[in-house]
Computed example of a mutant assay.
Amino acid sequence: MKKSKTIIILVTIAVLFAVSMYWLYSKNIEDPVVYETEKPAMGSIVKKTVATGSIVPKEEVLIKPNISGIIDEIFVEAGEIVKAGDLIAKVKVVPNVSSLNSAKNNINSVRTQVETARLAFENQKSIYNRQKELFEKGVISANEFDNAQLAYNQAQQRLKQEEVSLRAASQNYDIVRTGTTSGMGASANTEIRATVSGMVLDVPVKTGNQVIEANNFNDGTTIATLADVDKMIFEGKVDESEVGKIKEGLPLEITVGALPDKTFDAELDYIAPKGVDENGAIQFEIKGTMKNLDTTSTFIRAGLSANASIILARADDVLTIKEALVQYDPKTQKPFVEVMVGDQKFERREIELGVSDGIDVEIKSGVSKDDNIKVWNQLKPATGPTGRG
């Protein structure tokens, strides 16, 4: 029994020894690690962050009526170019009964005043004529004649004033009843005209729609929206984690979703001082004015979605390497690379870094474009079923 146990133990030891020897042999015959190298290259590096938004006109003008009523006729369609003063639409007035009665009563009152002034004038005219005959015969003094002439002139002036008031009351009645009156021409309240030159972006009303005038208590009904499509801006939002990196004046590169093959230049000119909570994230509004926009060759429609690449830093025609080649000293955290000085022999060189876009990084000093830099973190090739690549 003891002899059997001894044999088993010896066999186990022999097997373990054989496995160990085979493992050591396998390790010895493995290929040595051969590090690849890469050379620096001349290029440009752009550090940027991206904001999403849309392209909108810099200024939109809402055309509203000066009188309430019903749209009688519309003269423009969305997409047309208009000039300041062009007719947009006509409004047919539906008079307010109370205002109409008030204006009519005012006319009657002023007419009564006119008749009273006319009677007073005719009376003073008769007195003046009699006094004039008596003065010419020497019956009355010059002072008495002057008083009669003064009273006559005053009565004449009063009659003229009342007649002017009657015309004004009649015009006011016509305006209340029809929205216009004789002599108003292009100033008629029923004629809605463009206040600026530009493109008609939208006509939200139709013939027969009721509209409300713009006043201190109501914004009024928008009849048309006008804008200068040659002056467009990018309007978007950036996350709070990015807003600290940007500032006014930075260049933007705008890409429009509907025009993927074109890039437009812009300049960041507004960053909202207050953020807005959207789905748990704080967003800050930004605006950038688009530059050198040629709408004759490329028409950008208002409201198109777009992305803006905000250029944080840029380095052109500089020495660059992949950022993955850079190593950092565990104690000083200073960057360095390993440069080949012989067959699979490398030496450490400290470097000074510049602009980085997360993939490539600018090298300001430490290496030249002829150096071979060690790929220290290269991936091992996949092994097959036999264990060898």
Rank of each mutant, 00 (worst) to 15 (best):
K5Y: 08
K5C: 02
K5H: 07
I7D: 02
I8A: 13
I9A: 12
T12R: 01
V15D: 01
F17M: 15
Y22F: 13
Y25F: 14
S26L: 11
K27T: 09
V34G: 02
E38N: 13
A41M: 14
M42T: 15
G43D: 10
V46Y: 05
I55C: 02
V56H: 06
P57H: 03
E59Y: 09
I63V: 15
S68I: 04
D72F: 04
I74M: 08
F75Q: 11
F75E: 07
V76H: 04
A78G: 11
E80N: 09
G85T: 01
D86W: 04
D86N: 12
I88Q: 05
A89D: 08
V97N: 05
S99F: 09
S99P: 03
N101P: 00
A103H: 02
R111E: 13
A117S: 15
L119N: 14
R130S: 06
Q131P: 00
K132D: 06
L134H: 01
G138Q: 08
V139F: 10
N143E: 15
E144C: 01
A148Q: 03
A151R: 11
A151C: 05
N153F: 06
Q154S: 09
A155Q: 04
R158G: 03
R167F: 09
A168I: 10
I175A: 03
S182M: 13
S187H: 10
T190L: 04
V196M: 11
S197L: 10
S197C: 08
L201F: 04
P204N: 07
V205H: 07
N209S: 15
N209P: 10
I212C: 05
E213V: 12
A214G: 04
G220Y: 05
A227G: 03
V229F: 03
K231H: 14
E235L: 13
S241A: 13
I246M: 09
I246H: 01
T255L: 03
G257T: 15
P260C: 03
P260E: 04
D265A: 15
A266C: 11
A266N: 05
L268C: 06
D269I: 14
A272C: 11
A272G: 11
A272T: 06
P273Q: 06
A281C: 00
F284H: 12
I286V: 13
T295L: 14
T296K: 15
A302Q: 12
A302P: 04
A306C: 10
L312P: 08
L312T: 11
A313G: 07
R314E: 14
A315M: 08
D316G: 05
L319A: 06
T320S: 06
I321F: 01
E323N: 13
E323T: 09
V326H: 05
V326S: 04
D329N: 13
F336N: 00
G342Q: 07
K345I: 12
I351S: 01
E352Y: 01
L353Y: 02
E362D: 02
K364E: 05
S365P: 09
I373Q: 00
K374F: 03
V375R: 07
W376Q: 04
W376V: 10
N377R: 11
A382H: 05
T383M: 13
G387P: 04
R388F: 07
